[in-house]
């Protein structure tokens, strides 16, 4: 097909879709639509992971991001009753400046990468490192301590989120008694 392999076609299509959906996340007015476009972007990125032979990460990415985090976002948006486009626009100058800064950043990055003409090919087809067995071995031997720290971090985040999100009855009762 026009001299490209099927992997290259897949890469092109997935990249195009990811960038389009990411743009829609930023430019859609309705927050709910924005969340749904972000889910689609995450699915495209999971497709990239599959293309890179990182199967475990692709599955975890879909479960954690599209399954858990995005549900949390949708839940909060519904809770705050923001599902209409109630957001006032920023000033036009601010948005222009944001676009200009982004464009300049892109220009600098592309310019910096243009000089390095080392076109190293990514060889993903034969590698086995993305499999659960292999990653589990590395995770539980080399990275055992960071893994435990991550569990403590998740516990702390759990407790913190509950403490912050709880309605503070203590202060209210004090105010009423005073």
């Amino acid at each position: 097909m026009l001299g490209y392999t099927i992997t290259q076609w897949l890469f092109g299509i997935l990249s195009f879709l990811a960038i389009m959906f990411a743009l829609m996340v930023v430019f859609t007015r309705n927050p709910v639509n924005s969340v749904l476009y972000l889910v689609l972007t995450f699915f495209c990125i999971a497709g990239h992971y599959l293309l890179l032979n990182a199967q475990f990460l692709a599955v975890v990415h879909i479960v954690v991001y599209a399954g858990a985090i995005m549900v949390l976002f949708l839940f909060i948006i519904m809770l705050m009753n923001l599902n209409a486009d109630t957001e006032p626009r920023k000033h036009i100058a601010t948005r222009l400046i944001a676009g200009t800064i982004g464009g300049m950043l892109l220009f600098v990055m592309v310019g910096a990468l243009k000089g390095s003409e080392q076109l190293q090919l990514v060889h993903g087809g034969s590698s086995q490192i993305g499999l659960v067995k292999n990653l589990g071995k590395v995770l539980f031997s080399e990275f055992l301590f960071p893994f435990e720290i991550a569990s403590v971090l998740l516990l702390a985040a759990l407790v913190g989120a509950i403490m912050i999100g709880k309605r503070d009855t203590n202060i209210n009762s004090k105010e009423t008694t005073n």
């Binding site: 960038i19 743009l23 996340v25 909060i76 948005r95 400046i97 800064i101 982004g102």
Partner: peptide, 17 residues
Amino acid sequence: LFIIGVVGVMARRNAII
């Protein structure tokens, strides 16, 4: 993708976005 995220942070007002 990173720059789209940066532009979104600078250009939107909704904290969830």
